[in-house]
Design a protein around this nucleic acid. Structure first.
Length: 431
RNA sequence: UCCGCGAUAGCUCAAUGGUGGAGCAUUCGGCUGUUAACCGAAGGGUUGCAAGUUCGAGUCUUGCUCGCGGAGCCA
């Protein structure tokens, strides 16, 4: 028999079909049982009338517990009273594996309990919706760059130490070569790729051993990092803007059902269209001062500062030209004011904070070497990176987008821990 | 790392320093249209760990452990 999934039931109205899945919920009358089946593609209410099935089947329907795996057979009918609009008039029930005392009941649970049971929590309808949206965002990201002539280029996960200090890097032994570290970013490798292929993007997991305990931080998260030869900061911002619009509009178009499960207010997402406001760091500081924040010029924007700024707008806001002191060594200085870096952060609305950080890169050999020395970085570790400026250096720019923060924003979640199947955080690395 | 809050039944929570309860879940019974179904009954406890105050501690004090919220940190 052909395998049928719940999402395709509209094509089988009036037919007798068999579906397999798990018992999601059960309600019963004396001679009627409502078994809600889930199969990963949807939910289906199956009705067992005492007179329509054998006594064994009816007793089985009465007995099995939540999350028992089953195979149901019956006739598909349109039924406005059933969730989803379709119902199965069941004639048979086959038990695959019986379950009892499933810990996650259809009532409220605390976050600690749910996180301890993350492997089971993933079966809940909201978690299923989040995972489907995450998947679609990943596809939208790849489609966007693939359709625009970018080449996906995977950077290494294991890297030598190249950043300032090792306190935020996860460390591991690497044969006779000493220590290796889990990557924090594929950017420097993406720059090498851009010099080879013009337009590249990296997309993979990155790791930060920061002792951050906030709703926006994971120790292991996914980042997509495009890098484009001959782009300047403005072109970088154009790309970021088009990219975010594409992702949000794609999800709005294709994932309405999941957004509804998540009770997401989509009117906010509908406003995410170009152009996004672009303000300089100096203008951002003015906004903070107008809102009564005692902000020290030259500092980086804190979480609450970002919220105040993004609340001024109904769509993502791009803040550019930060003081060089708070930004990375490889960012190019603004030729009109060497105290500023040609950097941009994109802040998502609704207090979600930074989801993109990018910059035009320093392409001058001498200036880059100077910055490496200023930051007390080991020059020998950067010789390969300096080579990119020795041999055919060009202006180039790129950015990094945090996948989990983006998923959290689009899904309207208040914590990134639900945006990845098995989150890794400072105080949790199980299950 | 800092500030704040918390830990009581499988889960979510209640309990004036004086006999530890409820809802859900589980088990049993009832119900032919339920929508987190409903109705009736039963079982279920080393109140996170250790010490202290007290005639008496789930409740007050101290320490520890674990977690949660926030901050800092965060190319």
């Amino acid at each position: 028999m052909q395998k049928i999934y719940i999402k395709d039931l509209s094509q089988h109205v009036g037919q007798e079909v068999t579906l397999s899945g798990w018992l999601f919920n059960k309600r019963s009358g004396g001679k009627i049982k409502f078994l809600v089946l889930r199969d990963g593609s949807g939910y289906l209410q199956c009705v067992y009338f005492k007179g329509n099935v054998s006594e064994d089947v009816f007793n089985l329907a009465d007995r099995i517990g939540q999350e028992s795996s089953i195979e149901v057979t019956g006739k598909v009918k349109v039924e406005p009273r059933a969730p989803g609009g379709f119902e199965l008039d069941a004639v048979n029930l086959h038990l695959i594996s019986e379950a009892h005392d499933y810990p996650i009941t259809p009532k409220d649970h605390g976050i600690e309990f749910l996180m301890d049971n993350r492997h089971l929590w993933l079966r809940s309808s909201k978690q299923v919706a989040i995972m489907k949206i995450r998947h679609r965002i990943v596809k939208a990201i790849r489609d966007f760059f693939d359709e625009r002539g970018f080449t996906l280029m995977d950077p290494p996960i294991l890297t030598p130490a190249v950043c300032e200090g090792t306190s935020t890097l996860f460390e591991t032994e690497y044969f006779d070569l000493g220590k290796a570290y889990l990557t924090q970013s594929g950017q420097l490798y993406a720059e090498a790729g851009a010099m080879a292929l013009g337009k590249v993007y990296t997309f993979g997991p990155t790791f930060r051993a920061e002792k951050s305990k906030t709703r926006r931080h994971l120790t292991e998260f996914w980042m997509v990092e495009p890098e484009v030869a001959f782009n300047d900061l403005n072109a970088d911002m154009d790309l970021a803007e088009e990219f975010l619009e594409y992702i949000v509009q794609t999800i709005l178009k294709e994932k309405q059902e999941e957004l509804k499960v998540l009770e997401r207010d989509t009117s906010i997402l509908e406003k995410v269209v170009r152009p996004f406001p672009r303000i300089s760091y100096d203008q951002a500081v003015e906004i903070l001062k107008k809102n009564g924040v005692d902000f020290q010029y030259g500092n980086d924007l804190g979480a609450t500062d970002e919220t105040i700024i993004s609340n001024q707008y109904d769509r993502p806001v791009m803040v550019h030209r930060y003081p060089t002191a708070v930004k990375a060594f490889y960012m190019k200085r603004d030729p009109e004011n060497p105290d500023l870096a040609l950097a941009v952060d994109v802040l998502a609305p609704e207090g979600c904070g930074e989801i993109i950080g990018g910059s035009q890169r320093e392409d001058n050999y001498e200036l880059l070497l100077e910055r490496i020395k200023e930051h007390n970085l080991p020059q020998e570790a950067f010789e390969w990176y300096l080579d990119l400026r020795r041999f055919g250096s060009v202006p180039h720019a790129g950015f990094g987008l945090g996948l989990e923060r983006t998923v959290g924003w689009i899904c309207g979640l208040d914590h990134v821990r639900e945006t990845i199947p098995f989150p890794r955080m400072i105080y949790r690395n199980t299950p």
